[in-house]
Simulated assay, not measured.
Amino acid sequence: MTAPDVLHTALMTRLRAITSLQVFEFQVPDKPPADGQGRVYPYAVVWPGAGTPGPESTVTGASGDMWAASVNVAAGDPAWVLPAVTLVRQALSLLTLAPGITLTEVPLGGVVTKDPDVAPARWFLPTSWAALTP
């Protein structure tokens, strides 16, 4: 399996190329950048996985490991969330993370939701991404 940190770095590099989107790893700062009205600009926060051996790889050593990451997209205005999700999807869909490793979105069927635990107010939409590794 390709090392999870290599796959995570490739994902982060691609997301950080989106100039109109803040990208954070593991947590969001207490005071993320906001406009003059206090609305937090769109951002993505990434939580990578460590990889999961597939059933055939644990028995035979063959390929088939799974690597996954969650990317939550959020903003201080609900109307900003969907355009930010579109940017994330454009950046990550079918991204080649390493030779032979292509990232795909895992359908979640989520909806834009207000986060009741943060101030100033934010709305978010989780996305999930996975790749099979050789």
Rank of each mutant, 00 (worst) to 15 (best):
T2G: 00
A3W: 03
P4A: 04
D5G: 03
H8C: 11
T9G: 10
T13S: 07
L15H: 13
F24R: 15
F24E: 15
F24I: 13
F26M: 15
Q27H: 13
A34I: 01
D35W: 03
Q37P: 01
G38N: 08
R39A: 06
R39P: 00
R39V: 00
V40Q: 02
Y43G: 04
Y43I: 07
A44L: 01
V45Q: 03
V45G: 01
P48C: 11
G49Y: 08
G51D: 05
T58M: 11
V59H: 02
G64W: 04
G64T: 13
D65S: 13
M66F: 11
V71Y: 03
N72W: 06
V73W: 00
A74W: 05
A74H: 09
A75M: 04
D77Q: 05
A79N: 03
W80S: 09
W80Y: 06
V81M: 06
L87P: 01
L87F: 08
A91E: 05
L92W: 06
S93V: 14
L94G: 03
L95V: 13
L95M: 10
T96V: 14
L97K: 10
G100L: 10
I101Y: 01
T102N: 09
L103Y: 14
E105P: 05
P107C: 08
G109K: 11
G110N: 15
V111R: 15
T113A: 13
K114E: 15
P116V: 06
D117K: 12
A119M: 05
A119H: 05
W123Y: 04
L125T: 05
A130D: 06
L132Q: 15
